[in-house]
């Protein structure tokens, strides 16, 4: 869910805007390494894919529904820098063309969902992957753990921002319990769907999965001579 205008005070909004701008600048440099000169069209289409994937709703407790955030999904499929870039662009388009998420809260939203969500998820993903056996089938479970951790981590970061610059006099302990509790539930849905999607792409096009690329066996070109 996007943070709207007026939820955090102006100094906090501006500060998160600066953090977001710095994060996106780093991601721009990194994404060039992940995608080289194909950055613009490929990141654009991965961003569109993330947007489409976010349209999938799944039921959460009590008749409400959550939707996929797609941070870890994008990171595992296309690389962490590209994922930060894609989620930031998705949030930018949503704020400017769909009035979804406030303009002044754009920095906050990019920091939380784009940077914290993706970076935390990617670190967990690499961490889990380094413990598991080096096999392709391990990519999907690692992505699940990463997605499960990443969503409540973003909620935790939100709570921290709320304590610093929240405009409502609500007990921060209550906010913490509500936010993290709720997002653990969403995180479970996110984990299952992320793992299933990553699993299906690993099964059919493992070369496209950034997080599995180092596990693909180095297959050398073998030139066989035809027996005359």
């Amino acid at each position: 869910m996007h943070v709207p205008d007026g939820f955090l005070d102006a100094p906090t909004s501006i500060a998160t805007g600066v953090v977001a701008a710095a994060g996106v600048a780093v991601a721009l440099r990194g994404a060039r390494k992940e995608l080289d000169d194909r950055t613009a069209p490929l990141a654009g289409l991965v961003a569109t894919f993330v947007f489409a994937a976010q349209m999938i709703n799944f039921p959460v407790a009590g008749g409400t529904s959550g939707h996929l955030l797609g941070g870890v999904l994008a990171a595992v499929l296309a690389g962490p820098f590209t994922a930060v870039l894609c989620l930031s662009v998705v949030l930018l388009v949503q704020a400017l063309l769909m009035a979804d998420g406030g303009v002044t809260a754009l920095g906050t939203n990019i920091t939380l969902m784009g940077i914290v969500g993706v970076v935390a998820g990617w670190l967990v993903f690499r961490g889990v992957l380094s413990v598991l056996p080096k096999r392709r089938s391990m990519v999907a479970p690692a992505a699940a753990v990463a997605a499960l951790v990443s969503v409540p981590t973003a909620a935790l970061a939100f709570t921290a921002l709320f304590v610093i610059g929240g405009t409502a006099p609500v007990d921060s302990g209550k906010v913490l319990v509500a936010m993290v509790g709720w997002h653990v539930v969403i995180g479970i849905g996110e984990a299952v769907i992320t793992a299933l999607v990553v699993g299906s792409v690993v099964a059919s096009r493992p070369d496209l999965v950034y997080g599995a690329r180092h596990l693909l066996a180095d297959r050398e070109l073998e030139i066989r001579k035809a027996v005359a």
């Binding site: 069209p41 490929l42 289409l45 991965v46 299933l196 999607v197 699993g199 299906s200 059919s204 496209l208």
Partner: peptide, 22 residues
């Protein structure tokens, strides 16, 4: 969900390949 996930996986591959073609 498994069905839905395969759909999303296919959508990712199609989007990525569309990006390559573009």
């Amino acid at each position: 969900w498994p069905m839905l996930a395969r759909t999303l996986g296919a959508l990712f591959i199609r989007s990525y390949e569309r990006g390559e073609r573009v």
